[in-house]
């Protein structure tokens, strides 16, 4: 489902959203406000997600714990 290509798929989606925000921003004196705020929000959120995703793409360490209950391990 989610593999390394997700980053690029996400990027494509975000670019599409940015273009949409640019095109569909309401006209008027606040158009610049709409465009800049929407695009900046999309890009920021994408960055945040992409960083979290990349950080787990090739994990260098694995989770470890000593307090697992034996009943829980099948999950």
């Amino acid at each position: 489902m989610a593999n390394g290509w997700s980053i690029f798929i996400g990027l494509a989606i975000i670019i599409a959203m940015c273009v949409a925000a640019w095109v569909f921003a309401p006209k008027g004196e606040n158009q610049v406000l709409w465009r800049s705020s929407l695009i900046l929000s999309f890009v920021s959120c994408y960055l945040m997600w992409a960083i979290a995703f990349l950080a787990q793409l090739n994990p260098l360490i694995e989770p470890r714990r000593s307090d697992l209950r034996p009943e829980y391990i099948h999950h």
């Binding site: 489902m1 989610a2 593999n3 390394g4 997700s6 997600w49 979290a52 995703f53 787990q56 793409l57 994990p59 694995e62 989770p63 470890r64 714990r65 000593s66 697992l68 209950r69 034996p70 391990i73």
Partner: peptide, 22 residues
């Protein structure tokens, strides 16, 4: 129930599944 347990990747490192969000 008292030894340390390590986790391993579900897909065994074959890039078929990564946690998708966050």
């Amino acid at each position: 129930g008292h030894q340390p347990v390590m986790a391993k990747l579900r897909d065994g490192g074959e890039y078929t599944y990564r946690y998708p969000f966050g």
